[in-house]
């Protein structure tokens, strides 16, 4: 059920990308899609009643390995979030350039193919 809701979040992002006309709304759709995919990856590695994958001094290594959540998806998502921010900044920069050239954020008005 949680997976289904997570996929709904991804679908909302895809809806924003495909159906919206305003460039800023399309960027927001990309951001929502990003969040949904990150959440899905973390959900894959979750373990019920688990602990965070950080070892403590007083903790036995075997009980730690038996109760901790999966560290691998967390490691992948950690880098992906920061890269998502950089890609968002890149998209905003492109949108600014498009606004300067066409005077609008509306994608249907940007169909003039002038150089």
């Amino acid at each position: 059920m949680i997976y289904a809701l997570c996929f709904t979040l991804i679908l909302v992002g895809l809806y924003g990308i495909t159906c919206k006309k305003n460039l800023i709304k399309i960027i927001l759709g990309f951001i929502i899609l990003d969040y949904g995919i990150n959440l899905f990856l973390i959900l894959i590695g979750f373990r019920k009643d688990g602990i965070a994958p950080i070892l403590d001094k007083s903790m036995d290594i075997n009980t730690f390995a038996a109760t901790s959540v999966d560290p691998l998806p967390q490691a992948l998502v950690l880098t992906s979030i920061v890269i998502g921010l950089a890609v968002t900044a890149l998209m905003v920069a492109l949108a600014t350039r498009i606004y300067e050239r066409y005077g609008s954020f509306d994608v249907t008005k940007i169909n003039k193919l002038k150089g």
């Binding site: 920061v82 950089a86 920069a93 600014t96």
Partner: peptide, 17 residues
């Protein structure tokens, strides 16, 4: 990460249309 994100913010914020 610090220098990159600061740089991209700085470039975006000093630009105005």
């Amino acid at each position: 990460v610090m220098a990159g994100l600061f740089l991209v913010f700085f470039v975006l914020s000093i630009t105005r249309v």
